[in-house]
Structure formats: C-alpha cells, structure tokens
C-alpha cells in the first residue's frame, strides 16, 4: 500500500512535470525572442548577487545595459576588477582601462586654511548653503564642509576629518560616484587610482582673492605650468589643471614649486 502510494505520487508529479515542461518547451520555441548572446555571457561572469549596487535591478538588467552600452563594463562594484576584465573580454573592449576608479577630494580648504566672510547659521547641508551666498567661507569654489558626500556614501568609505574636510578611504571606495553627484560644488571627482598627483583646488578668482580666501589656493601664478613638461599641465581661468590624458608617473610635476601647496601626491 505504501509503495503503491509512493508510486502514484512519483508518477503523477512526474507526469505533470513532463506535461508542463513539454508545454514550456513548445512555448519557448514559439515565443522565442532573439537576444544578443553577449547578454547571457556577461550574466554568467557576474557575481549573481542581484544586490543592485550597480544601480540596475539585478545582475540580468546590468548585463543587458552593459551590452547595450548604457553601463560601463566596470560598473559592478561587487565583482571589482576581475569581473570587469571578464566583461571587457566579452565585449571586446580594452581591459587596460579597467583600472579602479576612486573618488578624490579636490579641495584642501578646511576650517584652518580658509578665511570666513560670515557666520552661517542656516540649514547645515551643502545644497542649502549654495542657496545662501555660498556659505561662510570666502572661497566660493571650495568645500563647504557639511558632508553631503559622506552622507551619500553607502560603503562607509568617507568621513569628515577634524578640519572639516571629507576624506576618502580609497581601499573601501568602490567608485560608485554617488559622492560626485551629491557635491554641489564639484569638489568630488572620479580618478584612476594611479593618478597620484592631484591639483587640489578649484578657485578661479586669481591671485588677489584666492590668496585671501585660503592658504592652500591656486593663485593662478602659472609656475607649475612653466616648470612642467610640455602638455602635462594647462592653465585656464586662473586655475592650473593636470592634463590626465597624458598623465605619467615618470614625468616631472613641479609639485613642490607651488606657492599655494595645491598639489598632493596621493
């Protein structure tokens, strides 16, 4: 009797399963949608955690967007460089470009370095501050120091130091770019981790005002541009900029010549 019921159970469920799978197989043939085979290939190499950290709902959606060019091949923060290499291989992209991107803070004007023009008692967020005469510092280009970037970071990779400036813990940074979006001043920038020479100032006011506003400001003197190798640095709007397109660690960057100490080697 018991063997009998076992057989019935196995038989009936197996039969039903076969019928349904046959139905699905036919439906799959009839309703088949031509899909780029790369999508499933990319999906195979992804971690499959469906965590959504890339900004898409699940790994499948990310794979589809990568293949369609809506997402970058290194967009998976969980997989890191290994997965990015695999994805790049499938897409046929240069994987050398898959170097890890991290957020960097492009301002050194903390509370100690900057001069104040007023006391700001308003809402202590950076976005609110932009609406109120750009905060209490003389420098209107720099960091306000209310830490919206730190709030935006979901990976605990940022903190505010005692001087009122955000600091990125590069080991923890996954390069999601949320802090870049959060900063109303454009202080946060995404850089390759090997870009270890940074010109950390955004002030375009030039000698007179910049020097008053902050002891670590670019005053637009142009010493660095003259001393550096050709094309490594450019000057625009009283502000020097490093030309990262032809960046090289071996080239000479006159970091110590800067009167404002704007350069850092980090």
């Amino acid at each position: 009797m018991e063997i009998n019921s076992l057989l019935i159970a196995v038989g009936s469920m197996g039969g039903l399963g076969l019928i349904f799978s046959a139905g699905l197989a036919i439906a799959n043939k009839k309703l088949h949608v031509e899909e780029n085979p790369k999508i499933s290939e990319v999906n195979e190499v992804l971690p499959g955690a469906n965590c959504g950290a890339c900004g898409f709902p699940g790994c499948g959606a990310f794979a589809e967007n990568v293949v369609n060019g809506n997402a970058k091949f290194n967009g998976c923060p969980v997989g890191g460089p290994d997965v990015a290499d695999e994805v790049a291989k499938i897409l046929g992209v240069e994987s050398g470009a898959s170097e890890r991107m991290v957020a960097k803070v492009m301002c050194q004007g903390g509370n100690a370095e900057t001069a104040k023009k007023a006391t700001y008692d308003g809402v202590k967020t950076c976005t609110a501050t932009t609406l109120m005469s750009n905060g209490e510092k003389f420098c209107e280009y720099g960091c306000f120091g209310y830490g919206e970037c730190v709030d935006a970071c979901q990976f605990d990779a940022m903190y505010m130091n005692d001087n009122g400036l955000p600091v990125v813990i590069e080991d923890k940074c996954v390069g999601c770019g949320e802090c870049v979006k959060a900063c109303p001043q454009g202080i946060m920038e995404m850089h390759k981790i090997s870009h270890n020479v940074l010109l950390r100032c955004k002030n375009e006011d030039g000698l007179l005002f910049a020097k008053k506003a902050c002891t670590r400001a670019c005053i637009g003197c142009g010493i660095c541009v003259r001393e550096a190798d050709e094309g490594k640095l450019v000057m625009s709007n009283n502000l020097a900029k490093i030309n990262y397109e032809n960046f090289g660690n071996d080239s000479k960057y006159p970091t110590e010549k800067c009167p404002g100490k704007c350069f850092t080697n980090r």
Binding site: I8, S12, L16, F20, G23, L24
Partner: peptide, 21 residues
Amino acid sequence: TNMQILEYVSFILVIASLVQL
C-alpha cells in the same frame, strides 16, 4: 488517488510553469 498531501507541490508546479509562459 487520495494524494491531497501533494497539493502544494502540484500547485506550485502549475503556477511556476504558467508564470514562465
């Protein structure tokens, strides 16, 4: 067949196949 005990399994089977469809 007096196999009411299998209702969950068989129902899930039906639902899963239909959803796939």
